[in-house]
């Protein structure tokens, strides 16, 4: 920014350098408060800061303040329609930890992360490795794999729901093969894994792209050196690819973890959290508490808990996974 200003001719005799403090020009140039006229440079400053400030204000008003405010809400009994919002201390948190449905949603969210994150990383990496080896039709495959990622989540969820419904395509295939039809989304023990499958399928494209970029950045040199030393393909993958891909893996794990911790749209559209709350996630619990039961206090308390979990999780991942790589 400094450079831009310095190289710009100013109205006062074409001088290009801002003069030091105390000079007459400085007073003319600076945007002064209280009706003093602004010079061209002053206007420029005003414009630049204005451009920078407006989004910041917007961000603060629309994002930051509500976040801080939700901490306040979490300590109140805040039924959306009731005129009184009394302060109740930790009562919302206490009631959450006695609520079977909430505890269940915590457990389910853990399953989403524990199963979903490795699944997503492995699938994305596998596709990336395969794509890296082909040259013909590479762009085509990359595009095809990326399409699910930019498709509406709601639409994809419903397509999965239709495929997996009792008389859907999946059961049709099983029956054709002479196998027993499955309850899929209507089984408390199966449904969460089908939702995770849908989530993985949809995000493969994103992970693939990130990994492809990471793989491109690994110099061929290392592979050649490893080959000369007699390393096989697994050895090369294990001792060259994986360590050098570590920063990318870390990024992918963090992004995927946050995604799975926030499982919502697929759950809402595929099962609504059922059967018997077996797929209910924290975010769906928050949504139902806030916008179906209108208990904003409890919902905010659950939001705060989710915030703490995500924060702890991310810090932990940075500590554990982000090791220095020796070249």
């Amino acid at each position: 920014m400094e450079r831009v200003i310095d190289s710009t001719p100013v109205e006062s005799g074409g001088r290009t350098e801002p003069t030091p403090k105390g000079s007459r020009q400085r007073q003319r140039r600076l945007p002064l408060i209280g009706g003093v006229r602004l010079g061209l440079r002053g206007k420029r400053y005003l414009f630049i800061y204005g451009c920078l400030l407006l989004p910041l204000l917007f961000f603060a008003a629309v994002r930051l303040l509500p976040i801080l405010y939700s901490f306040n809400v979490s300590f109140r009994e805040w039924a959306i329609l009731s005129p009184d919002k009394p302060f109740v201390g930790f009562a919302n948190f206490a009631s959450l930890f006695q609520d079977e449905v909430f505890l269940g949603s915590l457990r389910n969210t853990a399953v989403y992360v524990i199963v979903g994150v490795p699944g997503q990383i492995v699938a994305g990496l596998a596709v990336a490795l395969l794509l890296q080896r082909i040259t013909v039709l590479r762009t085509f495959f990359r595009t095809v794999y990326f399409i699910p990622y930019i498709t509406s989540v709601v639409a994809v969820s419903w397509v999965f729901r239709w495929i997996l419904m009792k008389n859907g395509v999946a059961n049709g295939i099983l029956l054709e093969l002479g196998l027993d039809p499955q309850p899929f989304l209507y089984s408390p023990s199966q449904s969460i894994f089908w939702i995770i499958a849908a989530m993985i399928w949809q995000s493969i494209g994103f992970q693939m792209l990130v990994f492809l970029a990471g793989l491109e950045n690994i110099p061929r040199l290392y592979y050649d050196a490893a080959s000369i030393d007699g390393a096989g393909s697994w050895s090369r993958f294990r001792h060259v690819t994986i360590p050098l891909l570590n920063p990318v893996i870390l990024f992918s794990v963090v992004i995927a973890s946050i995604g799975f911790l926030q499982s919502f749209t697929q759950v809402l559209n595929m099962t609504g959290g059922g059967p018997l709350n077996s797929t209910n996630s924290i975010v769906l619990y928050i949504y139902n508490t806030a916008f179906k039961s209108f208990e904003m206090g409890r919902a905010s308390a659950a939001t705060v808990i989710l915030f703490v979990i995500i924060l702890a999780f991310t810090v932990l991942q940075l500590k554990v996974l982000d090791r220095k790589v020796e070249y």
């Binding site: 994002r63 509500p66 806030a290 916008f291 919902a299 989710l306 915030f307």
Partner: peptide
């Protein structure tokens, strides 16, 4: 993330 989770409020 924070922004997303909190925006409802």
């Amino acid at each position: 993330t924070l922004a997303l989770t909190a925006c409802g409020n």
